[in-house]
Simulated assay, not measured.
Amino acid sequence: MKSTEKKELLSRPYAERQLIVVLSDDQIKAQQRYTEEQVESKFVKALRTISTIIAPSPIALAEATLEIYKGILNLREQGIKTLSISQSEASRIKFPPGHPRFGVLYIAHPAAPNVYFPFAQFHRLTFEHKFSEAVILLMSLGADFLEVHHINGWSKEFSSKMDISIPHVNVGGGFEASSANKSGSEILFTANFIGNASSALPDNLVWFYHEPTWQQIAEGRLKYGMKDFSLSVRYEDDLGVNMGLKAAATKAKLEIGGRFEDHQSTMWEIVGNFG
């Protein structure tokens, strides 16, 4: 797939590229030979013609491709914009380990255009990514202590399943779960970073530029020597990835990549101080 085709996908508005299904290059070629309006029998015939050259089992390929394509059309008929992309194009997109898989419905990351998550894990992975960025931001700005409070939404059980990767290069201390309470709120995590002399914005931020309060904390630290901070990590919009979409995908016989974890409107507050 040409790079210009990649650019075409990622430059589209979020609503148009939010949902994708990955197909093999050969399946895409077969699909493109006929438009959605052409009869199913002609589509199968085209698939079988191409499959005789590229696969030892043309009928199996034709039937498998047709089922996936019918699922995509089913979603479109329900008013749900869904794109099919080739395996070549998918290789230029970031997926979790083990992905992409053919026939699975993927959802675009709301802040990083080249990242897609399986439907079932979308909310957990998106919130996890946002929270991790908030912590990395605070560490890079020189935090020597932070404490994460649950305000509403996902709490201790959810946090225990998060895959949080916190770098400790030139920073002492640890990052661990806690069940202590302070001011009536549950403390989910605490972290100490001994001798953290960092004072800069980290690279590859994506959420930061959509969060004015995060920007204010960064400015306060970098320009005015701020010592204490309170940063909120909010996750309030389900982006249409909900039980209704799950039902539509199930009806269309598309895979969702596991057990669906539904959205919860969530806010965690990170408090602490800079060295």
Rank of each mutant, 00 (worst) to 15 (best):
T190K: 14
Y116R: 08
G153C: 05
W154T: 03
V148R: 02
K182E: 12
P110H: 13
D203R: 11
I194E: 12
F122L: 00
G174T: 12
A191G: 15
V104L: 10
V148E: 03
H168N: 06
S160E: 09
E186P: 00
Y106M: 04
S140W: 07
L73H: 04
P167I: 01
I107S: 07
D203V: 03
G173Q: 08
L201G: 13
Y69Q: 05
V206N: 11
P110E: 08
S140M: 10
F158N: 04
S183W: 08
K94E: 08
N114D: 14
A177V: 04
T82I: 11
A143H: 07
I80M: 10
E133I: 09
A111E: 13
P100V: 01
W154D: 04
Y106E: 04
E186H: 03
L105H: 09
P96R: 07
V206H: 12
I187K: 07
G172V: 01
F119D: 03
Y106P: 01
E157Y: 02
S155K: 07
H168S: 11
G184R: 08
Y106R: 00
M162N: 01
D163F: 07
G184H: 11
L75N: 04
P202E: 05
R92I: 01
V169Q: 14
F193L: 13
Q78E: 10
S183Q: 13
W154F: 11
S132H: 10
P167C: 11
G195Y: 05
Y116L: 01
I107A: 04
S178L: 06
T126L: 05
S179P: 03
H168D: 05
S155E: 14
F102A: 13
A177G: 09
M162F: 09
Q87Y: 09
T82H: 02
G142F: 11
H99D: 14
T190F: 06
P96M: 05
R101N: 13
P118F: 02
E176C: 00
G153D: 10
G98R: 02
W154Q: 07
N152Y: 12
S198N: 15
P113Q: 10
N74H: 12
G71Q: 11
L83S: 08
H109N: 15
I136M: 12
R101Q: 15
I164S: 01
D203F: 01
E67H: 10
T126V: 04
